[in-house]
């Protein structure tokens, strides 16, 4: 695998195929756990760790698992890591464990993890799968944290749990209606920015191609002559 391939994996995972804002996966956890920035980061990191481990294991076992029973095998692998993460959180971060509640065991059925196992890890080498897991996890964590910051700031007048001096709370943003509202606005803004990036990338490619082409007929003849002389 070349260096460029890893670059592409990271760009895909964080921006082009951002699981939350481009593919709209893992919606349930996104809507429920963005009430505060800390919850968003906690959920994002938990998913990242599980995604990394499950991608590596699925990629290692990709030639052993029979094709017919691959989905149950993937779910079994994911469930194992979810249980591990759950126990670790329960032991060391009981507050986060409480606030995540039922959504922590529900990571087992999170589309992002199963989707990456099915579409990427089961077809690629271990290193590539690990890079893909980290990239998608970062994309998910960034999306959840930004939504969590917005909702906590507007709905609860605090920033990462630090209360702001003013006491102006718009309860709308901590309710589920506000979750959908913030989610929709974030998707719209992200796709707007992404379309700009895509256009500039396409322009850059076209410019590079134009520069590599001979500029005039004379130049073309010159290069042909030079080749003949050789």
């Amino acid at each position: 695998m070349k260096k460029n391939d890893y670059k592409k994996i990271f760009f895909d995972g964080v921006v082009a195929n951002n699981p939350t804002w481009r593919l709209v996966l893992g919606t349930c956890a996104t809507l429920a756990l963005t009430t505060s920035a800390m919850n968003g980061i906690g959920m994002g990191l938990a998913v990242t760790v599980i995604l990394l481990c499950s991608n590596v294991l699925v990629s290692l076992l990709r030639k052993v698992i029979p094709n017919e029973v691959r989905i149950p095998a993937f779910v079994l692998i994911i469930a194992t890591f979810v249980t591990v993460v759950r126990m670790v959180l329960y032991a060391y971060l009981p507050d986060l464990y409480d606030s995540m509640g039922v959504f922590l065991p529900l990571i087992v059925v999170n589309c992002i993890i199963l989707g990456r196992a099915e579409s990427f890890a089961s077809k690629n080498t271990v290193l590539a799968a690990a890079a893909d897991g980290v990239a998608n996890g970062i994309g998910f964590t960034v999306a959840l944290t930004i939504m969590g910051i917005i909702r906590e700031f507007l709905g609860n007048a605090s920033f990462f749990g630090i209360a702001q001096p003013w006491d102006f709370k718009i309860g709308f943003f901590t309710s589920s209606a506000g979750a959908f509202f913030v989610y929709g606005i974030c998707i719209a803004l992200f796709n707007f920015i992404y379309s700009k990036i895509e256009i500039s990338l396409a322009h850059g490619k076209a410019r590079a191609r134009r520069q590599s082409l001979p500029k005039s007929l004379e130049e073309l003849k010159e290069t042909a002559q030079a080749q003949e002389e050789k």
Binding site: I170, G171, F172, F173, S175, A177, G178
Partner: peptide
């Protein structure tokens, strides 16, 4: 409805 939910 926004005001009703935001500032009950």
């Amino acid at each position: 409805i926004f005001a009703f939910i935001a500032f009950p």
